[in-house]
């Protein structure tokens, strides 16, 4: 990288203007989807809790994989907490996630999953921690979330909670919801049909750092 490119990236001494000080914004982690990044104001907030809620087969795991892929390819080390033991390494790798940058933790049950999340966020250095509760209905609503948020603020890890519904309430800085799913089937010659993909509407249902409202249609296709 040339000296000029380095200066462009780091900023030149002359770029500093006195009297224009603004409060620093929340650092962001790109989602890997430019339109979603624009809607969120730059990506997922680091050091905050983001919820991704959606019913079964709305593409929530696929969307989490897209975010994880963008994070790992930016050099981040990520952790994926998977109490349902549902991750398929091959599918995740095909979605673009670098497995070498991924720590996969499979706790036995929701209580251990929350404890594992606390440990991982507290350790620091993980750019993204995905707490994939899947269809688990957490009974510990409210109690663990403030601790998780405090730990995330301290270590600047982005915490993404994937679940059937939003669980963290006021502790979440951002709440994304997937709904209005549509399944596409490709129709070939004869009676041959194949699963082509799933469309779902993504809505920013809650945000303490930006506007709320419908964001985009997330399309996921079969390989």
């Amino acid at each position: 990288m040339s000296a000029a490119a380095l200066l462009d990236r780091l900023g030149r001494p002359g770029d500093l203007r006195l009297g224009n000080a603004r409060p620093a914004g929340v650092p962001r982690l790109s989602t890997g989807l430019p339109r979603l990044d624009v809607a969120l104001g730059g990506g997922l907030p680091r050091g905050r809790l983001t919820e991704l809620a959606g019913a079964r087969s709305t593409g929530r795991t696929g969307l989490a994989c897209v975010i994880a892929a963008a994070a790992t390819r930016a050099g981040e080390t990520i952790a994926w907490i998977d109490p349902e033991n549902g991750l398929e390494p091959e599918a995740v790798a095909n979605a673009g996630v670098l497995l070498t940058h991924t720590l996969w933790v499979r706790p036995r049950g929701e209580r251990d999953a929350l404890r594992a999340a606390e440990l991982l966020i507290g350790a620091g250095g993980f750019g993204l921690v995905v707490l994939d509760l899947g269809s688990l209905q957490t009974a510990e609503r409210g109690a663990p979330w403030p601790r998780l948020v405090q730990a995330a603020e301290r270590t600047h890890s982005a915490l993404l909670v994937v679940a059937a519904q939003r669980l963290a309430g006021a502790c979440a800085a951002l709440g994304l919801e997937l709904h209005a799913r549509h399944v596409h089937w490709s129709v070939g010659p004869g009676r041959l049909s194949l699963l082509a993909g799933i469309d779902a509407h993504l809505t920013i249902a809650r945000s303490r750092i930006g506007p709320v409202g419908p964001a985009l249609v997330v399309t996921q296709v079969c390989a």
């Binding site: 890997g32 989807l33 430019p34 339109r35 593409g59 795991t61 696929g62 969307l63 994989c65 897209v66 892929a69 963008a70 390819r73 349902e84 033991n85 549902g86 991750l87 398929e88 599918a91 995740v92 095909n94 979605a95 673009g96 899947g134 699963l195 993909g197 799933i198 997330v218 399309t219 996921q220 296709v221 079969c222 390989a223």
Partner: peptide, 20 residues
């Protein structure tokens, strides 16, 4: 490639959650 797919805001890959 997956990298190209992510960069262009193209559709993501449909992911299967295994039941084990």
């Amino acid at each position: 490639s997956p990298r190209d797919m992510v960069a262009r805001d193209a559709p993501g890959r449909l992911v299967v959650r295994a039941l084990r």
